[in-house]
Nucleic acid binder design. Structure first.
Lengths: 204, 204
DNA sequence: ACCTGAACACCGTTCAAGT
DNA sequence: ACCTGAACACCGTTCAAGT
């Protein structure tokens, strides 16, 4: 009987490469990272690595998919609660903390820049994003129905703004390490509450 | 008398290279653009180009400086008005339009990703940014004093949020071309007004 | 089946040679 | 002073050879 492909090994080797690549990408950027460096960081030879990813681009795509799914996970807590405004106040410090990790911000920027020009990366990006946006939209709509959220606000605009802001915060954090993250987080949370509640405030 | 360096030519050649580079960077990304391509796009030989920029990195730095100064110009209209909330409503459609140009968004992402890892690029970035942030902060403070802006909001947080949002919008626009920019712009403007005015609304 | 590492084609940069 | 383009060192990828 011929030896057959070992799926278990295949999966763990891919994970091993992706971990190494994420590390290199955060430090040097996607396109300044050489295959040799990924080989070294994952403890594999070039020939071995190319068994698991046929090109550097395929590593980038798999990596982008993972990175975006982490972002979706970070934000998705907002949608689970019945009251998105209350949920925002509650989880924002932790969300903000996640977004403003310097490494995370760098990887977000790398992936976004790559997705803007590379169709395969963009596909991974979109798949992670579309569901998230729908959930955010639904949560805001529920908020409007329940009277927590300004009934006048445009749902599409609000979703667009929030997602742009979350990515923007991550990008910013990679560029200017702020001294007092906790204070900034609560200041931003306050502003977002203003934004969602509108001119009448919470209890009107 | 020995021939001396022609400063006029030097300046125009640098501009020529930067225009060509911006073009290539938007299409292919900074690090996927080859020097050969920049040479071809600017109509110069390798040897000639290297007279004006000693390395590819020096092109990137000069380019980043230019790109960021355009962003600052886009946003700076907000600061000139005595009433930042009114100014926002007035100029936001145009600001939004500028930010959501697809090419512009791509270049913003490229520059941000690069600045996150490259000290020389980051320096160019910071220089353009710091003054802009101070002006935004001053404008918001004036707004608070005049009663246009929620007196409770944290100035640092508001500046951080706005700048993160503007870059985030540019990044988003490079990733998802929206069908109805005008509607989106007015929806986002409404939300920003909510945010800055706070629970009491404009005229309280 | 899985792995190694030398070899090939290409890109950033240099430099001898031209005007 | 300003320019050309062939040449060098390095990176993405391949492939003959090993286990």
């Amino acid at each position: 009987m011929a030896r057959t492909r070992n799926d278990e090994l295949h999966k763990s080797r891919r994970a091993q490469v992706l971990r190494a690549a994420a590390d290199c990408f955060a430090r040097k950027g996607i396109h300044q990272t050489t295959m040799q460096e990924i080989c070294a960081a994952s403890g594999m030879s070039a020939g071995a690595l190319y068994r698991y990813f046929p090109t550097k681009e395929s590593i980038i795509v798999a990596f982008a998919d993972e990175e975006r799914s982490e972002t979706a996970k970070l934000i998705s807590d907002l949608n689970s609660s019945p009251n998105i405004v209350a949920a925002l106040a509650e989880i924002f410090p932790e969300l903000f903390n996640g977004l403003t990790d310097e490494n995370y911000g760098r990887l977000t920027l790398e992936v976004a820049a790559e997705a803007a020009r590379n169709g395969a990366v963009k596909a991974a990006f979109d798949q992670n994003e579309s569901e998230l946006c729908e959930q955010l939209s639904a949560a805001l709509k529920r908020g409007q129905a329940a009277g927590h959220v300004d009934p006048e606000l445009d749902l599409d605009a609000a979703v667009f703004l929030l997602v742009a802001l979350f990515d923007g915060i991550a990008g910013r954090a990679a560029l200017s390490q702020t001294s007092d993250k906790a204070r900034l987080a609560s200041g931003v949370a306050y502003l977002l509450r203003n934004m969602l509640e509108g001119p009448r405030g919470a209890n009107s």
